Computed example of a mutant assay.
Amino acid sequence: MKRTMRIILLPLLLFLFATGFSTRHAGDGQALYEHHCVRCHGADGTRGMFGARNLQKSLLPDTAITLQIMNGKRVMPPFKKKLTPDQINELSAYIKTLRKPAI
């Protein structure tokens, strides 16, 4: 019985250490936005501090959003060294959810 428990618990512990006990799940672009972007763009994407664009009115294609997050623009800092490519994609996907349809 003890051997069976070790066989089950050892891989589980190794998995937890390998993932760094991360509670953040993939696809958490909103948390990334709140941490990195909300200060200038606002919670709903309309704030416009320091010349930040209104994200609700943005018409940028997906690749342009990703490039702007990676490289920054004017006052906006680049995030290519702060975020992983997956995080940049998650953030880009979340930013697109802030868009409001044109009337």
Rank of each mutant, 00 (worst) to 15 (best):
S22V: 07
C37S: 01
H36L: 13
N71T: 11
H25S: 06
H25E: 13
A26Y: 04
T23S: 14
H35S: 14
L67F: 06
A31C: 07
S58K: 01
I65V: 15
L55Y: 03
G48S: 04
A64E: 07
A52K: 06
L32R: 04
A52M: 06
G72P: 06
Y33Q: 09
L32Y: 04
I69G: 04
R39I: 13
E34L: 14
C40M: 00
N54H: 06
D28P: 03
F50C: 15
A31N: 04
L59P: 00
M49P: 10
C40L: 00
H35A: 15
P61M: 08
D28I: 07
R47F: 05
N54Q: 12
D28Y: 10
T23C: 12
C37E: 01
A31I: 04
V38D: 09
M70P: 05
R47S: 06
L60M: 06
S22L: 02
V75P: 08
A52I: 01
L60V: 07
S58F: 08
M49F: 10
V38S: 10
C37W: 05
R74P: 04
H35T: 15
L59Y: 13
L59Q: 13
I69Y: 00
K73W: 10
T66I: 15
H25D: 03
F21S: 04
G29F: 04
T23G: 05
S22I: 04
D44K: 01
G48H: 01
T46F: 06
